[in-house]
Design a protein around this nucleic acid. Sequence first.
DNA 1: ATAGGGTTAG
Length: 786
Amino acid sequence: MINRALNNSATRNYLLNKINQCTNLSQLNQTHAQIIHNSLYNDLITVTKLTQKLCDFNAVCKASLLCSAVPNPDLFLCNVLIKGFSRNNLPEKCVSLYLGIRGGCDFEPDCYTYAFTVSACSQFSCEKMGMLVHGNAIVDGVVGDLFVGSCLVDMYLNFGKVGYACKVFDGIPERDAVLWNTMISGLVRKGWLEDGIRVFCDMVVRGSLFDSTTLAVVLSAAAELQELGAGMMVQGFSIKNGLDGHVYVLTGLISLYAKCGEMVPAKLLFEQIEQPDLVSYNAMISGFSSNCDIASAVSLFGGLLLSGEKVNSSTIVGLIPAHHPFGHLDLTWSIHGFSFKCGLVTNSSVSTALTTVYSRLNEIEYARKLFDESPTKSLESWNAMISGYAQNGLTETAISLFRNMQALGVTPNPVTFTSVLSACAQLGALSLGKWIHELISKEKFESNIYVSTALADMYAKCGSLEDAQRVIDMMPSKNAVTWNAMISAYGLHGHGHEALKLFREMLASGVAPTGVTFLSILYACSHAGLVSDGEKIFHEMVNDHGFEPLAEHYACMVDLLGRAGKLDKALEFIETMPYNAGPPVWGALLGACMIHKNTDLARVASDKLFELDPDSVGYRVLLSNIYSAEQNYPQAALVRRAVKKRNLAKTPGCTLIEVGKLPHVFTSSDQSHPQAESIYAMLEKLMGKMRNAGFQTETVMALHDVEEEEKELMVNVHSEKLAIAFGLISSEPGTEIRIFKNLRVCLDCHNFTKFASKITNRVIVVRDANRFHHFRDGVCSCGDYW
DNA sequence: ATAGGGTTAG
């Protein structure tokens, strides 16, 4: 009997050892056979070890069956099984086992039970269950335990409930490095970067011992924030504690310096690493690439390949020149080809990054091809595609893709909404935008600054400044882009003084103006005829804010002066430029010549333009208009023929009007509308009254960039007239009419609309390609300059 | 520890 027991114990030790040594499932199955053969299948210790190993090899079902056959399971075995279910993505099994332990077992859950169950809830976002387990843990008095506490902190941070996480954290005054690290890395992972750094500082102040993991996480937060100072503080601590040679710390520092645009120290740090691993290479490559040093990025990438090290998706994504101001189509193609060869194009991050760069290079078809071919479409890849369409002006496609995404049950996030709103804004689709706003409210995304800025911009561009202002008033804080959007919104509607007021408010609030701020405010001044204010701001920009004016700023000033009729002053201004004026500047002067019908100066400007930009369509159309205005029709026709010959696209004019949330689109002389007959009747009635009142159709060609439409005025009816007539017959008397035209409104239609607003006693709001016109009582808010 | 998606002007 004694012998037999000894023998059993020896066999058991032998088998336990054997289980530990198994490196795959088939070896483990053989060992299992031996266990059965030796009649140890009911032995708790052996079965527990076997369960553990089976779970490691993802054979949790088999493990579960084995356990249920054990006559006398204990808590330890149950805990191992909970961990196994969690590992094998079976949260509901974890929970039911946990509940089984709680309800009518001989034993009570311990710290391990709670820790494993909580981390299962965390991993699988079982929010309600997690909180219930937390409650039980409080009752059982185990929340002060470091292991349980860390799991709870991790869980609440995963759920985004920072308050709860802090409560658990604060309840454990004696913290170890794991608890601190859980708190810090959870905050950083969820984007609460500043808070992560703050907790780290707390940790240091309390004298808690940190490790290289702590430093690496804090460094990644500092890098993301581009807070060089915070990062250098961490560097200081790493030196003090002798962790500055650790490869994680060094890699974190490289990434920090790279993200702050400091590649020289990054390079020095990289050289300090004796044997750089893939991650440190990746940090360097992405650093070079994002700092526009393509040559260094590519050469380091080459070095990595030569060293025989395998590359991963991070390497590829870091190499892709996604944020470069100049296109690198050739490089992108090469990277694309390489990714294909090593099987990484199917990686979601890689294909998303490639999609993004293609669409930024206006190669939207390539982007779409990649998107269609990617086997798993992450939210990021949907976003990349939607924003690609929105940024390329393919607004309808962007919106229909958004609908596809919704139909497939992919939940949009703030990034998605921001892009879709930009599409709505471009489209002028107010009811669509309002629908998006409802979706945003439902998801509680209004607090996101990108979303609310885009929302305000959408309302302004869809004609409703009041709604835009309402969104802005709700925002707790504004960044430069928010201010810029509002300044340009007021400018767009011709409210120059409001825009100036906002500009002063922005400066007073301490938000630094950007290049776009000055463009927005200068355009606002220009459209409102506030010449001296604009000149003052340009002066301020250079002298007080130390801005080097870009070509766009000069173009704005030329526009400002020229629009106000100070053409000579505009020309003088061009001569003061420190470099040669480019197409935008001459284009602005030409535009001003159009308004003020200065043919001589127009020819000077257009000569310059054709010299600099021979392929431009718009300027050729303008030139043709100049000739037409001089009644030089043969020359005008010649220019137009040249345009046609080059097969340069011309956009046909069309106008959109929403009636009862339904969009109606009209083209020139459109007969396709079901109510065409009454529309034309209404138009005839208006035109008759207009003629009687002495209005004349502009016979001389207006010098506007309105393309083909203009010439055909005598035979054709422009789309905006049709839309207004339709608006008049399909809405209540006295209500506002809003229409959207894709091109600039022509002089004749502008006159027509003024007249229509007077005799019908309606406010008519017109958004054209450039700005808003508010017609009221025969007067337009643009003051007839547009 | 490294990597992917967003708002503003013309």
